[in-house]
Amino acid sequence: MRNFKRPVAIVASASFETPSEPSRNEVELLLPVIHDALGQVGLTQQDIGFTVSGSSDYLQGFPFAFVGALDAVGAWPPIRESHLEMDGAFALAEAVAVLQHGHVDTALVYAFARPSRGDLDRTLSIQLDPYSVAPLWPDARGLAGLQAQAMRDSGRFDSVPEVPPTHVADGCTAVVLAVGDRARELTKTPVWITGIDHRIEAPALGVRDLATSVSTRLAAESAGATDVDAAYLHVLYPHQELLLRDALGLNGQPVHSSAGPMMVGGLERIAAAAKAVAAGDARRAVAHATSGPCLQQNLVAVLDATAVLEGAAA
């Protein structure tokens, strides 16, 4: 998706990450971060047209856990709200789509997780094929190792790093979006999302060529991820950065990779890219988020200091 009829910009964002949050619950983690993001552009929740979040109930350990997190935004008077059992980056893609409808001009996207309380490698195995894979409880690091070895065997990479333990961190990110002139009212440095798309590959690991990232390449083509001068990549294990550089056709641009908290890290990369563009450190950046085992699903967003003019879609 690109050349939006209604240009959408990131106008504010805030993030928090810690290796292990000892006491605060999800709502208490989110409250200061959401208020920071909204406060940067002088908004309150009442000014937000659409609110959407990304998180995983499996990390909290009970069904509909995400509903409790709404206390961090306040759901009364009633708000238009949605939730994805995914990284917040995919929630941002939903917000961009909703903003195209024309009914609302602003959106709040947030993501949160506290995986430090459990065994993340074990919890992530529940996302796998429930018949032939999940019952084996494969650890996420072990599956990542299958991809790293496939890369070594392909002979297409000079050196593939060893797979470290799975990154575990707690935290949250909040991003405020606004459309067209509303974005220009709110900030002198709106960062325009000129393209965004996400693609998924087959769930069966043995069907895929693990030494490429076809879904990243397709998402990047659709989002128009060319002529970028910086990349912000959601990398859960170091070898994945090599596949992503390849799939995105990066060629010497500075690459800023981070894993971040599970369910948060992708949205955090988009927020980090937007901060860099707003600060003038990059003119046009590509941001990436991933979900699922071995880069199964990938989202690519293009962030630009300059908007594609309204009506320029044709």
């Binding site: 065994d119 019952p135 084996l136 494969p138 650890d139 072990g142 299958l146 070895q149 797979v163 043995g206």
Partner: peptide
Amino acid sequence: VTTWSWNDQPRSGQPLEHPFAWALVR
């Protein structure tokens, strides 16, 4: 074996209790 990784610390519920290789087998 089409690719593999070594699991030196098997977890509860995994197929073997001693170190083993995860593998994709065709």
